[in-house]
Computed example of a mutant assay.
Amino acid sequence: MAKDQSKTVTIDGREYNLADLSENARNQLLNLRVTDQEVQRLNQQLAIAQTARTAYANALKKELPEQKTH
């Protein structure tokens, strides 16, 4: 890849040269990238919390007294 080749971004199926975007558009693109990273981080945190919850629920079930059937 040549160093002078323009960097591009694809949005809604259309490719844009970053150099052709306004400063505001580049800032919004950066905001989207940061937000996507945060969503990914939060999804990972949610997966960890769900796994922990399942483990706690299973541990609780083992600690409950046996139910007597009539």
Results as ranks from 00 to 15, higher is better:
Arg26Gly: 01
Val34Gly: 03
Ala19Lys: 13
Arg33Tyr: 11
Asp4Trp: 04
Gln44Cys: 06
Glu66Ser: 10
Leu30Trp: 12
Arg33Pro: 00
Val34Cys: 05
Asn24Glu: 10
Gln45Ile: 07
Ala25Arg: 00
Asp20Thr: 01
Gln37Tyr: 07
Lys3Tyr: 11
Lys3Asn: 12
Ala55Ser: 09
Arg53Glu: 13
Ala19Met: 09
Asp4Lys: 15
Asp36Leu: 15
Arg14Leu: 12
Asn58Arg: 03
Ala47Gly: 01
Asn24Ser: 10
Leu21Ser: 00
Gln44Thr: 08
Lys7Arg: 15
Gln44Met: 14
Ala55Glu: 05
Glu38Asp: 04
Leu21Phe: 02
Gln67Met: 12
Asp12Ile: 09
Gln50Thr: 03
Leu18Glu: 02
Glu15Arg: 11
Ala59Leu: 10
Val9Glu: 00
Ala49Leu: 09
Ile48Leu: 13
Gln44Asp: 03
Ser22Lys: 01
Lys61Arg: 15
Gln5Lys: 15
Ser6Val: 14
Ala57His: 07
Glu23Cys: 04
Lys61Met: 12
Tyr16Asn: 00
Gln45Arg: 14
Ala19Ile: 09
Ala47Asn: 03
Asp20Gln: 04
Gly13Ala: 02
Glu38Phe: 06
Asp20Phe: 03
Arg41Met: 03
Ser6His: 13
Ala59Ser: 15
Leu64Asn: 01
Leu32Ser: 02
Asn17Asp: 13
Ala52Glu: 15
Met1Pro: 08
Thr35Phe: 11
Lys68Asp: 10
Lys68Gln: 06
Ala59Tyr: 07
Gln40Cys: 04
Ile48Tyr: 09
Glu63Val: 09
Gln45Gly: 06
Leu21Trp: 00
Lys68Trp: 09
Glu63Asp: 07
Asn27Gln: 13
Asn58Met: 02
Ala52Thr: 13
Lys68Ser: 09
Gln67Arg: 07
Pro65Thr: 07
Lys3Gln: 13
His70Ile: 11
Glu15Lys: 10
Ala55Val: 08
Lys7Ser: 13
Gln5Pro: 06
Asn17Leu: 11
Leu32Arg: 12
Gln28Ser: 13
Ala2Ile: 05
Glu63Asn: 11
Ala57Glu: 14
Thr8Val: 06
Leu18Ser: 02
Gln5Val: 13
Lys61Asn: 10
Lys7Trp: 12
Gly13Met: 01
Arg26Asp: 01
Gln67Thr: 10
Asn58Gly: 06
Ala19Arg: 12
Leu18Asn: 04
Val34Lys: 15
Gln40Ala: 15
Ala25Thr: 03
Leu60Val: 07
Gln45Thr: 04
Glu23Ala: 09
Ala49Asp: 04
Thr35Lys: 14
Glu15Trp: 06
Lys7Thr: 09
Ile11Arg: 04
Ala47Lys: 03
Val39Lys: 04
Val9Asn: 00
Glu38Pro: 00
Lys3Cys: 08
Asp36Lys: 14
Met1Glu: 13
Asn27His: 10
Leu64Cys: 02
Gln50Arg: 04
Thr10Cys: 04
Arg41His: 06
Leu30Ser: 08
Gln44Ser: 13
Gln37Phe: 02
Gln5Asn: 13
Gln45Ser: 08
Ile11Val: 15
Val9Thr: 01
Ala59Thr: 14
Leu60Trp: 02
Ala25Val: 00
Glu38Trp: 05
Asp20Trp: 03
Glu66Pro: 09
Glu23Gly: 05
Arg26Glu: 03
Leu32Val: 08
Glu63Phe: 12
Thr8Asn: 06
Lys61Tyr: 08
Leu29His: 03
